[in-house]
Design a protein around this nucleic acid. Structure first.
Lengths: 216, 216
DNA sequence: ACTTGTGAACTTGTTCACAGCA
DNA sequence: TGCTGTGAACAAGTTCACAAGT
């Protein structure tokens, strides 16, 4: 919307989460919300919420808080400005399948324009609502689309090659589920969803807390 | 190992990633590594690596860098100190299945001690190498284990109830794949893996960069 | 009285830069 | 020379605290 301002990662993440809460809140019949109410839903401070909304230039009223509908529309304008390119989903195993279900279900803002896999028994079929192509055909299939986001849900050994091919097909952002660091040009945005690391982190802190509890 | 020091989240995450690289490096026949080499593998600065290792009290030699084997053992001692409790996996849909495969495969440090689902055609069977119990029996089954970590891979509507029951069964850390904020006691550690938020974030930055490229 | 918007303070995390050592 | 270990500087992100509005 306002092209001049850079919005940091963390703020974008919270805006997405805020919007989810706002929609639920709205369904429950509310039409206004205070910063401290939204903050409680997302487990952040009220000051954080106001700061985030300040970042996107949204303004409420001191007496009546924020109008939910206009706030949701404002966030829509930032997160889904319209005319976006679609998603290329590579790897239709368990994670890929879960994502496809999710995206084709309650998620019309972003659509999967092409899905890929190497398994012969997946290629050529419609899986989880997505036509599944052979990875060999990635460039050819994506040439006919405007895919801007790629999702990598393939084994670690194949991830880098897939990333290279996605990038050369015009993809500018990647969600990477493979446990490797991808090497991409500086103008491609990568978010690593590293489940193994998450698990070890949680195991560490869980254990630390269980031990502390025992020690008391 | 050293119980007195608090290690921040980010450092734990990087240690887990470092260890992965170190093992690969070791398999390739190396037995020493410099901070800048490890840094390049994980896309951080050399100073960051040295700072992280300082945090855990690991020390290398100026002339020869770090000895891989002893460093891996040191990280093992922190991340997997032995005698840990197991993992309770709730929800054996696509995400749960993918996790089960992963955990039972190349991941012996952490074992799934019980898996749960509500679907009658999943309960009572062995899926992805895990015996699957009914969620109703969660407390009863977990009472016979020392599960300290819980994984929530159920729909958003069921997540809070599952979290409550995991916590009351002794779980002190949760990896949450459901798109909701869980309400848990302060001594329970939660890591939210929010795929919808990841996707919207990547879509936002991908679009922003694609647009910037067009503008030039 | 209770809210928003925001400068300023603070906290946390990262990088710099260099002393000391092999 | 080229590395590690680390105090100090720096940057980013969060919270405080209060003026101003209703």
């Amino acid at each position: 919307v306002n092209p001049g301002i850079q919005i940091p990662d963390r703020v974008i993440e919270r805006l997405s989460a805020y919007r989810r809460h706002l929609r639920r809140w709205q369904e429950q019949g509310h039409d206004r919300i205070y910063s401290h109410q939204l903050a409680a839903l997302e487990a952040v401070t009220a000051a954080q919420v106001r700061r985030d909304l300040m970042t996107i230039g949204h303004t409420g009223s001191p007496a009546r808080g924020y109008e939910i509908e206009s706030l949701v529309r404002h966030i829509d304008g930032i997160l889904n400005p319209g005319g976006e390119g679609g998603i290329a989903l590579v790897g239709m195993g368990h994670i890929g399948g879960a994502l496809a279900d999710y995206l084709n279900g309650a998620y019309p803002e972003h659509r999967v324009v092409a899905a890929f896999d190497v398994h012969p028994d997946r290629v050529g079929r419609v899986l989880h609502g997505c036509r599944c192509y052979a990875v060999d055909e990635l460039e050819r299939v994506l040439a006919g689309t405007r895919a801007v986001v790629g999702i990598i849900a393939v084994p670690a050994s194949a991830a880098q090659e897939v990333a290279d091919r996605l990038v050369s097909s015009g993809v500018r952002g990647i969600v990477n589920f493979a446990p490797v660091r991808l090497h991409v040009p500086a103008d491609v945005y990568v978010d690593n969803v590293d489940i193994a690391v998450s698990l070890e982190k949680v195991a560490y802190f869980a254990q630390a807390r269980a031990n502390r509890r025992e020690a008391l």
